[in-house]
Amino acid sequence: MLYVYSCCPVFAAPYRNPAPSPPIHADILTASAKEAAGMLEDARLLLARMSASQELARRILTAAQSSDAAAVKRLIKQTGIKNDFDVTFNPDGIRVSLFREQSRFIIALRWSA
């Protein structure tokens, strides 16, 4: 009879129990969803104003092309949004982030082909 032995001993890895999940608190998710719903109204307002006014869109594009971030923020603020926001832009488009304490709503729009 022929017995084949491995040159290296093989040991089974010990079984590890996964870490317990933290307790579930749905109230945090609910509060975040309520905040996001309020930001959704601002997002709708901003998009409605930008889609209705080519003059506003042209002014935002002109300010962005000249890298005038303050002017872009001022023009967006003039649309009537109430939430805090941040704006970033590049040659391809613009990204407006509406934010509150527990949530963030991001709008990304293209302006080049």
Rank of each mutant, 00 (worst) to 15 (best):
M1C: 12
M1D: 10
V4H: 06
V4W: 04
V4M: 09
Y5I: 15
C8P: 09
P9Y: 14
P9G: 13
A13V: 09
A13L: 15
A13M: 12
A13Y: 11
A13F: 08
P14V: 11
P14I: 08
Y15R: 15
R16A: 12
N17Y: 11
N17E: 14
N17D: 11
N17V: 13
P18Y: 07
P18F: 05
A19T: 09
P20E: 07
S21Y: 10
A26C: 13
A26S: 13
D27W: 09
D27T: 08
A31I: 02
S32P: 02
K34L: 13
A36S: 13
A36M: 09
A37K: 11
A37D: 11
L40S: 14
E41P: 00
E41V: 03
A43N: 03
A43Y: 00
R44F: 02
L45T: 08
L45I: 12
L45Q: 04
L47R: 06
A48S: 15
R49I: 03
R49H: 06
R49M: 06
M50A: 10
M50E: 12
Q54N: 14
Q54I: 13
A57S: 10
R58C: 08
R59Q: 13
L61N: 11
L61V: 07
T62D: 15
T62C: 13
T62Q: 15
T62V: 12
A63C: 07
A63F: 04
A64K: 01
A64R: 01
A64F: 02
S66P: 06
S66D: 15
S67I: 05
D68C: 08
A69W: 01
A70S: 07
V72I: 08
R74M: 06
I76F: 02
I76L: 12
K77E: 09
K77F: 04
Q78T: 10
T79E: 02
T79F: 01
T79S: 03
G80M: 05
K82I: 07
N83R: 05
D84C: 04
D84K: 08
D84A: 07
D86R: 12
V87T: 01
T88Y: 11
N90M: 07
P91T: 05
I94Y: 01
I94F: 03
R95Q: 07
R95Y: 03
V96G: 00
S97E: 12
L98E: 00
F99E: 01
E101N: 09
Q102W: 04
S103W: 00
S103V: 00
R104G: 01
R104V: 04
F105V: 02
I106Y: 05
I107Y: 03
I107W: 02
A108H: 09
L109A: 11
L109V: 11
W111S: 01
S112M: 07
A113S: 15
